[in-house]
């Protein structure tokens, strides 16, 4: 089943590469020390590559949002209130219990339903909540003169940074879970192959 058009695959791989660079350089900046450790990028290089990757990621994100607005792909991200809680619970129950008993997937992938309810919910949270906050706070740190100096007695820069690293951390956790759940396809490698070839292998 052809599920992932070229633009989605391109956006996805660019997003993944940039996000990994941003995690490594972000951690390097946050945990840099007077002695540069082997696995940590030096501070000056980390700042440079973090900034470059961040600008590219922002452009890539704008491309993603715009494409979803003008293409059919946007419909996969629309959450319906109808059965929202019960579907989410059903999917959670499948991942935590029923799949071990060999039961069938409660929401099999079709061209009309690319994401299961849990996927859809987490993707919407990641792409339409965490990502904008991450990008806005990142822009704030890149142009500190745009940040309000003090908010309730605390430095605006500190709060912006806390927001930025919190969103960065949440999205890193999302990425770890995302990579793991991608091993839950027909075979552990099926979904990885799918996002490269565009074809989804049904269970």
């Amino acid at each position: 089943m052809y599920l992932y058009p070229v633009w989605i695959r391109l956006w996805h791989i660019i997003n993944a590469i940039l996000f990994i660079i941003l995690i490594v350089t972000g951690l390097s900046m946050q945990y840099t020390d007077k002695q540069d450790y082997i696995l940590v990028v030096s501070f000056a290089r980390a700042v440079k590559w973090h900034n470059i990757s961040a600008v590219l990621l922002t452009v890539n994100y704008i491309f993603f949002v715009t494409s979803n607005l003008i293409s059919e792909n946007g419909r996969y991200y629309r959450i319906s209130k109808k059965n929202f809680g019960s579907d989410l619970f059903k999917q959670l129950r499948y991942y935590s219990w029923n799949m071990f008993k060999g039961e069938k997937h409660p929401f099999p992938v079709t061209t009309e339903r690319k994401f299961n309810p849990l996927q859809k919910f987490s993707y919407v949270l990641a792409m339409y909540f965490a990502f904008p906050l991450l990008i806005l706070s990142g822009l704030g740190l890149m142009f500190p003169e745009t940040i309000i100096n003090r908010i309730f007695g605390i430095s605006g820069l500190v709060l912006t940074d806390i927001l930025h690293i919190t969103m960065g951390f949440c999205l890193t956790i999302f990425m770890v879970i995302h990579i793991y759940t991608c091993t839950l396809g027909a075979r552990p490698s099926s979904l990885f192959k799918g996002i490269i070839s565009g074809y989804h292998e049904s269970e």
Binding site: L136, S137, T146, I148, I151, F152, G153, I154, L159, L163
Partner: peptide, 24 residues
């Protein structure tokens, strides 16, 4: 040029996280 909309959005986000602190 400052970005008032950006500042407003950022402020709204930050207020959610912020807490008042006694200035020492």
């Amino acid at each position: 040029m400052k970005l008032p909309v950006f500042r407003l959005v950022l402020t709204a986000g930050l207020i959610a996280l912020s807490f008042s602190a006694a200035a020492a």
